[in-house]
Design a protein around this nucleic acid. Structure first.
Lengths: 153, 153
DNA sequence: CATTCTCCGACTCATACGGTCTTCTACAGT
DNA sequence: ACTGTAGAAGACCGTATGAGTCGGAGAATG
């Protein structure tokens, strides 16, 4: 159920890595890939996608690499996942157009959309900085609704 | 992101349909499929899975079909999804064994597991009966934490 | 007993994710 | 300016899995 793609996993790992490295110097895709033992070329492609999405800035050439485009506490897990996996939704009924091909017959669309939104809020409340310091209190100021996400059908 | 399979969709729709039909008489897979315009044979297979999982009872032969094995307010969306899609998790890191192949290097596993649990709680608070009567107050007595699901990294 | 209806398991097909390879472009240091 | 390094971008392939199909087994009714 509710599978997140490996690409998004890798992307989050890479961002966390970059967030940990203090000092704005760039880190190459190869370095990050080796640190986590993931395929370098695949990670490179993911980082490219993130750069194109505006979450990373790339710097070509010797001693080049990638760096965060924004502070780690301003990048949400939701942004990362959406950038990599695209604007997919919990159910095939919910499309970018907001209507499914069975709009008239599909009667569970609305409740599921609520669930979808709740999960979206959940992920929007998680920042890269939170991944770096899991026990830190800093995050709470960003957490959505103080860490609570409501669900009402 | 976070895609739910079409099968789970269909399964939820079918359960909702059965929950709406008052009177414990059985309804054939064909009837439900026609009501929602979904491939009959595919729905049949989904219903088989649900029956095998103990959520439905099947009755073969003329005038046979399926019926809910439990009251609609005792079947959660989480049960349905897990029965159909299997015990999958939000990320490939989180397996049934609890460990990923990169246990040592993958540092974002723990936060994501929390997210995974939150989503699980979210879905566990939704009952088939809630889908039938979206505006009903009845559901609130079942809702997890009064409709709130906490997320703390 | 036989026919019809329904469930049931095995099977095929398509999509897209995961991963790789190759080529081109841009920057840094000498 | 030259060269080596590193990113950018595209095509490409294998495989896993989701979506959908087909023939058979079993049960109830007449």
């Amino acid at each position: 159920m509710l599978r997140l793609t490996k690409k998004a996993d890798y992307g989050l790992m890479a961002l966390k890595y970059l967030a940990e490295q203090t000092g704005g110097s760039a880190h190459s895709a190869k370095d990050i890939a080796e640190a986590y033992h993931i395929p370098p070329q695949l990670l490179a492609k993911i980082l490219q996608t993130l750069a194109k999405g505006g979450l990373l800035v790339s710097h070509a050439g010797t001693n080049g690499g990638y760096a965060l485009a924004k502070p780690a506490n301003e990048i949400t897990a939701f942004e990362v996942i959406r950038t990599i996996d695209g604007p997919l939704f919990i159910t095939s009924c919910i499309t970018i157009h907001g209507a499914c091909d069975l709009t008239s017959t599909c009667t569970i669309k609305e409740p599921l959309r609520k669930v979808n939104d709740s999960i979206k809020d959940l992920l929007s409340g998680i920042y890269i900085a939170d991944l770096v310091e899991p026990g830190d209190a800093e995050r709470s100021k960003h957490a959505v609704g103080g860490g609570l996400v409501s669900i009402a059908l």
